[in-house]
Design a protein around this nucleic acid. Sequence first.
DNA 1: CTAAATGCAAAACGTTTGCATATAG
DNA 2: CTATATGCAAACGTTTTGCATTTAG
Lengths: 151, 151
Amino acid sequence: MENRIEKIKKQLHSQSYKLTPQREATVRVLLEHEEDHLSAEDVYLLVKEKSPEIGLATVYRTLELLSELKVVDKINFGDGVSRYDLRKEGAEHFHHHLVCVECGSVKEIEEDLLGDVEKLIESQWEFKVKDHRLTFHGICKDCQSKQQDDK
Amino acid sequence: MENRIEKIKKQLHSQSYKLTPQREATVRVLLEHEEDHLSAEDVYLLVKEKSPEIGLATVYRTLELLSELKVVDKINFGDGVSRYDLRKEGAEHFHHHLVCVECGSVKEIEEDLLGDVEKLIESQWEFKVKDHRLTFHGICKDCQSKQQDDK
DNA sequence: CTAAATGCAAAACGTTTGCATATAG
DNA sequence: CTATATGCAAACGTTTTGCATTTAG
């Protein structure tokens, strides 16, 4: 934890950005909710619990900055809100998501399943892949068994 | 073309929706721009050329309806706008996209590249896949050669 | 004839911006 | 000390909504 903050601090300084208390507090919230997919508002409310002075605009600015630094990924699941997802340490690519259309739960998949597909894209379409977004929509394990019960 | 409109008409009627002139005009615009990724505003302006009385709200309502019927897919490439993409006839899954981070161009890929990956998801994560979204971010053929030239 | 759909304007929503003030480095 | 960052409120662009009116079936 302190480790990763230290690292982010260096990334910031290397581009003459400052690690302000607000930014640190924001990063801490993201680290504490690594599994979640928080909206800017969510982050704002959580940061506010410990640092009540922070403004929503600062949270937006911080999230955008972290996005540039590839510390977080900005995603959109189709509701009108952007969500921010911390990248795993050293992860080259964005991870995948399983979105349940019944209950709305979102599960993360770390494995990179697209190695072969990317090779195909690069050779067949001559497109140099930098990153990807992959989301499956379907029915999660829990909701599948719930549907069984209904019958 | 008339074919597909007829089909959509039946889909609408089967759920006691009406095929109004505005809806038909909207569908026609989508059919004429199958390769594009139009925003609601884009669609509105195009429909307006032929049916000037239409209102923006109607276009939004129509696009949402078509989305429910799985006639179009709503996508979001990260700019703050939703875009609407007609499904190919009989396509079970949403097609894929190659977004160029240099020039912003978007290319569609019809092939379903995810067959194996979906099988893996279903067996290993016990998640029943209904649909997917796959977008690659990278550098398109044209921008690659442009970068060569710069050197 | 009536439930469903429309157009319009107003409202709501998430997000961004301008600016005077504060502060990390 | 100064460039960078902040909080606030106002502005922004997209999308949704309420409502009186029209219309497809």
